[in-house]
Amino acid sequence: MTSPLMPAEWAPHERTWMAFPPPNDTFGERGEEALEQARRDWLKVAETIAKYEPVSMIVDPGDAAEARAQFRDRFEIVIHDLDDAWMRDIGPSFAFDGDELVAVDWVFNGWGAQSWATWENDSKIGRVIAEHAGVRVVSSELVNEGGGIHVDGEGTVLLTRTVQLDPHRNPGATVEAVEVEFACTIGASKAIWFNRGLHRDYDSYGTRGHVDIIASFAGPAKVLVHDQRDQGHPDYAISQALKQRLAGETDAAGRPIEVIEVPAPTVLRDEHGWVDWSYINHYVCNGAVILCAFNDPNDEVAAKILQRCYPEHTIELVDARGIFAHGGGIHCITQQQPARR
């Protein structure tokens, strides 16, 4: 008996899933103004992806009229109650069980039951999408988010100890138990653990260490790594640890991993402290890489690195500063549905 296998993000997609930001407390004192800006930022990403593949958008019932007015029939609308709009984390992780597409439904509890989070509605989105896509659900008892894993489609998964082993997510969990669960649900025969994520990811509205902002696969045995080169930034030591962890490492097939360093943006701080701006949090869709931009000199440096990794793809730079201000990036607001075989 075989386990489902999650394909790499660069495998062909049927569509991309996103969520239209609903009103909630995370928009802070700016309230409606911040919500409107977030919606513009999310829609800019959706518009860019839609040039390459269909986009389906979960929309809260209270926002249906507004969404229809803004979408102008460019995206499919699926109505369901929402708490927030981080589709990478609330949506399912699609995998193939043989030739059958299935949806792995993780337990979602607001990134470890964080005080500011609500998740009654978002915890149901995995099954909502699976039903809409017409695929079977593979249920997991593991508290996990899509941003907490990154796969190569050949049995290797990247992850962090502060997410899956978080006592607020999976109390008492062990490395061995988590690896068994990933083997059974997404076909991961080799797990590469990092100790932690970026510094700011442990502040308010952080995820406590998602891997998709520090390291991602860009092909078999190729890993892009967030490289903070300013020694005054707390992420400098974290970047060094990432590279040291991958030195001499192999993937599930036994191939030596090539580490590809992607320089962090030159901006070090914003009004809230040390930034966690990262080019690693990009999204690969059919024929394009949707890359976070920060109006920074390193935007073009990152674009050239990604172009070398994906020579057949168009690199689309999209300003992600507004998305990062709410705690994530472009990868965090998207979730791919693979094309059926």
Rank of each mutant, 00 (worst) to 15 (best):
V59A: 08
E47P: 03
P12A: 08
I58T: 15
L35C: 04
Y52N: 13
V45F: 06
E33R: 10
T26P: 13
T26K: 15
E47L: 04
E9W: 02
R40L: 07
P21C: 01
K51F: 12
T16E: 10
E36P: 10
I58N: 14
M57T: 10
W10S: 12
L35M: 05
K51I: 09
A64W: 03
R30Q: 15
A46I: 07
E29N: 14
P22A: 05
G28M: 06
P23C: 10
A19N: 08
W17K: 10
V45S: 05
E14Y: 13
E53M: 13
T26G: 14
F20W: 06
A64G: 02
V59L: 09
V55H: 04
L43G: 10
P22M: 05
Y52P: 09
E14A: 15
G31L: 03
P12L: 08
I58S: 13
P21G: 02
I58E: 13
P21H: 00
D41F: 00
A38S: 05
Q37A: 07
E36D: 14
E47A: 07
G28I: 06
A8K: 00
A34L: 08
F20V: 03
R40K: 05
P12V: 04
V55F: 06
P61S: 05
Q37L: 04
I49C: 06
M18T: 07
E36C: 10
A34N: 11
A38H: 02
W10V: 12
A8Y: 00
L35D: 01
E9G: 01
L43H: 09
P12R: 05
A64L: 11
E53C: 12
E32H: 00
T48F: 01
E53Y: 11
E36N: 13
K44I: 06
S56V: 08
P7H: 00
R39G: 00
A38D: 01
A38T: 03
L43Q: 12
N24P: 14
S56H: 10
L43W: 09
D41T: 00
P7Q: 00
E9I: 02
A64Q: 07
P12W: 08
D41K: 00
G62W: 00
D41R: 00
E33K: 09
D25F: 13
L43F: 11
L35G: 04
E36L: 12
T26Q: 15
A50G: 08
V55L: 04
E33C: 04
P7C: 00
A64C: 05
G28C: 09
E36F: 12
A19L: 11
K51G: 12
